[in-house]
Nucleic acid binder design. Sequence first.
DNA 1: GTCATGCATAAGCTCCACTTATGCATGCTA
DNA 2: TAGCATGCATAAGTGGAGCTTATGCATGAC
Lengths: 298, 298
Amino acid sequence: MTDSLPPLSAIRVFEAAARLLSFTKAAAELGMTQAAVSYQIKLLEERLGAPLFLRQPRALALTEAGQWLAPRTSDAFDLLREAFSRFGEREQATLIVNTMHTFAAQWLAPRLGVYQLAHPKTAVQLETTQRVVDFSREEVDVVIRSGKGNWPGLIAYKLIDVRFTLMVSPALGKQVGGLHKPADMFKIDLLDPHDDWWQLFLAAAGLPPEKLRMDLAPIGLQTITASAAIAGRGGALLVKAFFEQEIRDGRLYQPFDIEVDTGTAYWLAFPESRRNVPKIKAFRDWILGEIGTHTAQG
Amino acid sequence: MTDSLPPLSAIRVFEAAARLLSFTKAAAELGMTQAAVSYQIKLLEERLGAPLFLRQPRALALTEAGQWLAPRTSDAFDLLREAFSRFGEREQATLIVNTMHTFAAQWLAPRLGVYQLAHPKTAVQLETTQRVVDFSREEVDVVIRSGKGNWPGLIAYKLIDVRFTLMVSPALGKQVGGLHKPADMFKIDLLDPHDDWWQLFLAAAGLPPEKLRMDLAPIGLQTITASAAIAGRGGALLVKAFFEQEIRDGRLYQPFDIEVDTGTAYWLAFPESRRNVPKIKAFRDWILGEIGTHTAQG
DNA sequence: GTCATGCATAAGCTCCACTTATGCATGCTA
DNA sequence: TAGCATGCATAAGTGGAGCTTATGCATGAC
């Protein structure tokens, strides 16, 4: 790799001029003036120590040296042109979405099929993690994460406010004679009681925090807690937006209007610099349409 | 050819960085700073709308997109590198010398074998023409032509002054009883009498021009006139330097010291811009050495 | 804790790739 | 044979891409 190439700009100009056998036409193709082409060719010829063109009046011709060089440079540029033109299409081929587990399971996964149908050329690759991904270190196109939406260098669109509320299986509610007033919630087990949000929920309901029984083991993932609630094992503190299907199906219901606003939300985010990448724009437009909201924050 | 490539400088930098998996090393190879590499890669990533590298601490890695692109750009640059590196050798392979007929036949051709032995890698291609060649229109490396050596854009080295003198075959001289004084020349036929130089020669000899018999037909090429002289058909006006071998061999001799200086000379000439091309320098050095003179004129 | 490594970023400069304008030679046309 | 069109060369001047220098930051090694 020690042999140094002549200036690439000169090579590019030569490639075009040799192909078109005209400095004027080459200039037109490259979007520059004939004088610039003449200059670059002269530069290259001086660098190589050999004339590449014969300047016959009204007819440009390649010298033998030029004839030898032309196909080789053309081949090289053909490779580059093809690579970079295919690169564009290829880039649209897969979209890597990194989301938090709950959002993937409860919201995105069920709807993804629709997106795939609408965008058959882009395969969506779902990754779920809990840790915060760094776009400069991991190969991810967009993330869906919870927080306040103020991440430097990223554009974030708010998807869903994180507002917890009590959710119970209708069967369990009936079994304890109905949950009519907030205090009735102590008639059932409250799942994942170590979750800090319970304290805020009890406060919002005007109930004494010490009545929360802490003897149940922590579960952790909201999806699993929800399964337990659906199975009638107790009441869970859930983000209502994630369980609309379960509510419609009668597998869960919300006994009280009380909600805890955590001040955080789920956001769709990606690097500012990639805001105009087609596959990212398409995904953003679709997900915001599904959410029915369009609150953007830089 | 409509799809435009990203800036070539950025592609070149990417190729090196992808190959070396290090911005710092790529910068060293390309003879620039790490900051410049970082800048160019960023430019390319923004242009393509996709990251090409993963910036992991102390370890650079290619993204999938980068992995796809890298071998293609490397292939293209390999082609270019090989083409331009072979171009150099190839260029030394043949030297095209365009000379006037007389010089080729009487001086150059007999000595060319020696040159070829000394420079086995360069094949000399001899072209003989009488018209003046234009370097920008014809594929010629060097010319040998007669004139005054003042050609714009060309470097010219004087080889041989054009000084005509009377040459006769010894046999013919003896046959007419010897050529002792200038007037004796009228005892033999004077070949090519229409050649204007005869008038000057007679004047230099102090002889009356009207004594030149004009009845012989013109011959034209000096080589052929010389053959006629060697054959004893008359006296010829020749450039002595071209017939040294014939003089040594006793096939011609110069009866008088009288010479006509035409004011012109034979010159080796080539474009100024190619003064440093190895094969041209080598040929120039050789021919000047053979001549034993080194008079240069721009 | 300290040092070394390696990429990112900001600010500023330098050079060269370009443009504009013109010239020159040629071949076509009437 | 003059006049026009074509196409490359050349000179002079300019703008900005592409560079450098300087610095910061994160990480891993010792």
